[in-house]
Amino acid sequence: MNKTRFILRIGVCIIIIGLTILLPSITLAGAGSQSTNFNTSPNGTYFELVACLHRGPHEIRINAPQAFIGTISVFNYDGIRLLIEGTKSPILEEYIQGSALIDFTLDRRGAYLIMIQSNVSTEIQGSIGLVEKGTINLDMILDSTIIITIGTIISILALTLSILHSYKLHKTTQPK
């Protein structure tokens, strides 16, 4: 296999990867929901959860006894780093009492820390659910578009090289 054909194959493979990432991002939009149980010890203790979330609107569903009073905070990747260093800068912070529904929108895909702080003197058990609302995964579409563009550029480059090569070959084999 010559070099230009090899580069062209790589370009086509990258385009195919991009297209197949794009397809589930469109067809499976809004299908994601995750849930887990949580347990908070008395006063001022935390329950921490890391979730990998897409860009777009989300909903947190907290199912807890009516006696539960606390705060829920959501930190992005940089927020987690700042939290470790001692600065609390959540992208969302809400006071909750009992069960609650909290809507929030993320502007990028990544790891998010969800922290529930208990402000009651008893141990509380509950459950937390994360729902991705029914919109298209814009960040995955954007990423797949970038991948498709890279693949297209590589393919065009390979085709140009191939045309140049055949033109050169044609020129040298032509009788003067």
Partner: peptide, 15 residues
């Protein structure tokens, strides 16, 4: 790529 992302809990502040 059709799979969904997961959750995991822990004590991250102490890390």
């Amino acid at each position: 790529f059709q799979s969904h992302f997961g959750l995991f809990s822990g004590t991250f502040q102490s890390l």
